[in-house]
Nucleic acid binder design. Structure first.
Lengths: 210, 210
DNA sequence: CCTGACTTTGAATCACCAGTCAACTCGAAC
DNA sequence: GTTCGAGTTGACTGGTGATTCAAAGTCAGG
């Protein structure tokens, strides 16, 4: 059946993307060879280029794919939480590098930095990056809007602006944590992020929960 | 004279570092060839490796060198300003990518991202990065301490913690601005940074100056 | 069983580039 | 003016890795 073939082909496609993301995480974009990806899939190097036009395109797709996965997981989780406060907490938790080892997931942040570098010079990557980033900031802004509607958060600064500010803060701190485990621990990042987010949005943390 | 030789040699050393930083800014670390650097210096490729043990060491030194230059410029400027408020403003101005074209300087931030990527896997780079970053956050914390001593800023959160928070915010926003000129302009970043910094430190901006 | 399209292989090609090296230049010291 | 050695050149080497390709394998449908 054409269907079977198509499905098989699609699986392989995805399999390669996953392997690529994994290799990039482990070795870095610069040290990623097609043969590494092939090895990880248990196939020959030639096959990689049978499924992808070029190494470059594959890499961009892989970076995008990995970030998509993260986003899907994030929004699936948030959908289950009703309180905006708790949504925000969870979003922060999921965004702190290395805080939740149970996930055994790729280091999303290492991939983000690779995306940034590449986006500086590769227009295709730049475009993808913008979409990914917009979506991410949107999630934050949506939580704030919901929280306001529910009366959990006060009115105030434009929600999209806050999304941008809180997003920037998370990005900046994630870099520190990722680079420099000792001076700035994941736990500390979580605390500070909650704190600053509260201050920016304008609600106060219960003294007990700090 | 030995002196002359030594000086000449030192100039060449620095000349190569500058050329390297320039090439990295233009083409990105991944696309930087020894021959590009040589060409920029107007010398032959062989000479580059006469002065530097290997390409890798040269690149790390060049990234460090460029950041040093930025820091020196920054602290030279800040030393001339007595008001902490104005020091903070100036620090923000100098940190916003592309805000002050008159400098015609390298894009420091593009280099920072390269530093981050490399620091993820190269211990030598990681060490340099940490020192550079510490110094940078220190500058912010020092401004806050001075401002408090002078009564310009209220007492409050630990100055080093604030340095970390404000530093992270600047990092995060700089990334956005650098990547995405349209959605977040340098001017806007300056405003937002001042705003958020004021909120975090706990002073209020005069309505007139906004 | 055959056939033909899709998948997979791995050897061959091709370009590129870091690093080496033998030779050359040239100013300084004597 | 001769020697010395740092500075400089650019051709060469060696290795690497993306991409190509012809051949082989697989499998669904007839």
């Amino acid at each position: 059946m054409a269907r079977t073939r198509q499905k098989q082909s699609k699986d392989r496609h995805q399999e390669i993307l996953e392997a690529a993301a994994r290799v990039i995480t482990d070795r870095g974009l610069a040290e990623t060879r097609i043969s590494d990806i092939a090895e990880r899939c248990g196939v020959s190097p030639g096959l990689i280029l049978y499924y992808f036009e070029s190494k470059d395109r594959l890499l961009v797709e892989a970076l995008t794919y990995a970030n998509d996965q993260f986003y899907l997981r994030l929004s699936r989780e948030l959908r289950r939480i009703s309180s905006a406060r708790e949504q925000l907490d969870r979003l922060i938790e999921l965004s702190v590098p290395g805080l939740l080892p149970e996930y055994e997931r790729l280091d999303e942040w290492a991939l983000w930095i690779e995306i940034w570098v590449r986006a500086l010079r590769d227009p295709a990557m730049a475009k993808e990056r913008e979409a990914l980033d917009r979506r991410w900031r949107q999630s934050i802004a949506d939580i704030i809007r919901e929280g306001r509607q529910a009366g959990e958060f006060p009115q105030g600064v434009d929600a999209d602006d806050l999304g941008q500010q809180i997003g920037a803060m998370i990005d900046g701190m994630a870099i520190q944590v990722m680079m420099n485990d000792t001076a700035f621990s994941p736990q500390r990042m979580r605390e500070v992020c909650r704190d600053v987010a509260a201050k920016l949005i304008g609600f106060s943390l219960e003294p007990a929960s700090a």
